[in-house]
């Protein structure tokens, strides 16, 4: 589904990504693992268009997307979450989710004044879906709370719910479990499985090896921006380079 080929990225003389190539299979959960600073979040940034100066090729279903502005990449069906749960702080939780809905895309001033009813409807539909999602995970009472007043765990929940709001087929989750206590991890795990069940493809960055082993079908290992190994978790775990990389850090 996603083909990443020969990606090179340098910043200020430092080589951040080094001739990186891997493939993401549709409908599976792929783990992207590696020690801290290996470049995992950077890979996300390159693929989702937040970094535009990498060389190489990234193809989504045979379509070149490297260098496209990030909002266009999103519209082609890619969505990502952020490691530190970047919710929009001074607006409500409900609005946070509505902003992620494809229903409100292309809102324009023309529509505001000449197609108000349609806009109303789209917004209401998005709000409806948002409320359902919030209810499902049990934080419906936080709908109108400003996102900055949420707990860390709740922000991470909202971060994943945004993925559900979007219609993205390829989803990049950047450490969705980090910093959470076991109760929350269970909830988020459930949500990740739901994403798969609904036909989406998931790429997961995570440090918790147990979770990676449990959840992922396929694993790509990175260190210093280079791919060390790729394959099933059990195979990769035995790989000498991989072991060294983790021991060395």
């Amino acid at each position: 589904m996603l083909k990443v080929h020969n990606i090179n990225l340098s910043l200020g003389g430092l080589k951040i990504l080094n001739d990186l190539s891997f493939e993401i299979e549709e409908g599976k959960i792929t783990g992207l693992i590696g020690p801290n600073g290996a470049g995992k979040s950077t890979v996300f940034n390159v693929v989702t268009g937040l970094i535009s100066f990498a060389t190489g090729s990234v193809q989504l279903r045979k379509q070149d997307i490297l260098g496209a502005p990030s909002y266009q990449v999103s519209r082609m069906g890619i969505m990502r979450t952020f490691q530190d749960a970047q919710v929009l702080p001074q607006i409500s939780v409900l609005e946070n989710l509505i902003s992620a809905s494809p229903l409100i895309r292309d809102a324009s001033l023309f529509q505001v004044f000449f197609r108000p009813k349609m806009m109303e409807r789209m917004k209401a539909e998005a709000a409806e879906k948002a409320r359902e999602l919030l209810k499902k995970v049990g934080i419906e009472e936080k709908s109108n709370v400003l996102a900055q007043d949420l707990s860390y765990g709740q922000s991470k929940l909202v971060e994943i719910l945004k993925v559900f709001m979007s219609d993205a087929e390829l989803v990049f989750l950047d450490e969705p479990f980090s910093g959470l206590y076991p109760e929350m991890i269970k909830v988020i795990k459930g949500l990740v499985y739901e994403l798969i069940e609904s036909g989406r493809t998931v790429v997961l960055v995570e440090h918790n090896m147990k979770l990676i082993e449990e959840v992922c079908d396929h694993v790509v290992v990175l260190d210093f921006g280079t791919k060390l190994a790729e394959g099933k978790f059990e195979e990769v775990r035995e790989n000498k380079d991989v072991v060294n990389a983790y021991l060395g850090h």
Partner: peptide, 13 residues
């Protein structure tokens, strides 16, 4: 949303 965080808003399309 753009006021709060431009990147996140772009990631939402």
């Amino acid at each position: 949303a753009t006021r709060e965080n431009q990147r996140v808003t772009q990631v939402s399309g």
